[in-house]
């Protein structure tokens, strides 16, 4: 059951990067407890959209709001209420999993205790024997799991996930989708960027289709059901607006 209260709002967002208009006035909103998937090909503006909610980019027009507040007015407050999972898990290679979690949680102001850290690492199925090894020795998927554990441990109301299943094996992807659903059921808001049509349809309540910096269509899951993968796939492959 979705709440009507909105947690993330993009209002006519326009962003110019390197002289090119990457976002051309997109508008959408994500409610409390909702999983919103942003689908699109390479260069569609998916990751850029996420970065606007974190205040990492200057807006050429429009507004980004987190919990009704303009991000540009208090960027630190916006970041504190969001757990962000970047596309390639950007953690320290010279630290092990536990050290990474402890450090970044420290920066977030939430001192994670050993017990909850182990629980989060268990939840993302990171092998126990790997937890004391430096990330330099990890595979891409293992790093991604540590980053997901960090996002879980942040225990924020909102999660921004940039290609979260990239590098994960099929089993881990399924487990991750289950995790996202559980978090949403607990009232967390999830904005997920992906080009995995099947994965997005499995987990999202709504999907927005981005093409060349414009939101060209939206799909909603029917009550108690899932979004029609075929319909989304057709729209994704088509050059027409939905």
């Amino acid at each position: 059951m979705l709440s009507n209260r909105l947690r993330l709002q993009a209002e006519e967002l326009r962003v110019i990067r390197g002289g090119k208009e990457v976002l051309k006035g997109i508008t959408f909103a994500v409610a409390i407890g909702e999983v919103y998937g942003l689908l699109g090909g390479n260069g569609a503006g998916k990751s850029t959209t996420l970065l606007t909610f974190l205040g990492f980019l200057d807006l050429a027009g429009g507004n980004a709001r987190v919990n009704d507040a303009l991000v540009s007015e208090d960027v630190v407050a916006a970041r504190r209420s969001i757990a962000y999972l970047p596309e390639s898990a950007s953690l320290y290679e010279h630290l092990n999993a536990r050290e990474n979690l402890r450090y970044f949680l420290g920066l977030a102001g939430s001192a994670g205790d050993d017990e909850s850290m182990e629980a989060a690492l268990d939840r993302v199925a990171l092998p126990a024997e790997a937890r004391d090894r430096r990330l330099a020795d990890y595979s891409k998927g293992m790093r991604q799991k540590v980053a997901i554990a960090l996002a879980i441990l942040r225990n924020t109301d909102t999660l921004l996930l940039d290609e979260p299943t990239s590098g994960l094996d099929p089993t881990a992807i399924d487990e991750f989708h289950d995790l996202v659903r559980t978090l949403a059921d607990d009232g967390k808001t999830v904005l997920m960027v992906t080009h995995d049509v099947y994965g997005a349809c499995q987990v999202a309540d709504r999907i927005g289709l981005l093409r060349d910096g414009r939101l060209v269509g939206e799909f909603s899951a029917p009550a108690g059901g899932r979004i029609d993968t075929e319909a989304v796939h057709r729209a994704f492959s088509s050059r027409e607006a939905v």
């Binding site: 974190l54 990492f56 960027v75 630190v76 407050a77 970041r79 504190r80 969001i82 757990a83 962000y84 970047p86 390639s88 950007s90 953690l91 320290y92 290679e93 970044f104 949680l105 920066l107 977030a108 102001g109 980053a147 942040r154």
Partner: peptide, 14 residues
């Protein structure tokens, strides 16, 4: 360069 700056700033520090 290693994108950890984004991870750091995303934790809510300036």
């Amino acid at each position: 360069e290693s994108s950890t700056l984004a991870t750091m700033l995303a934790q809510g520090i300036s």
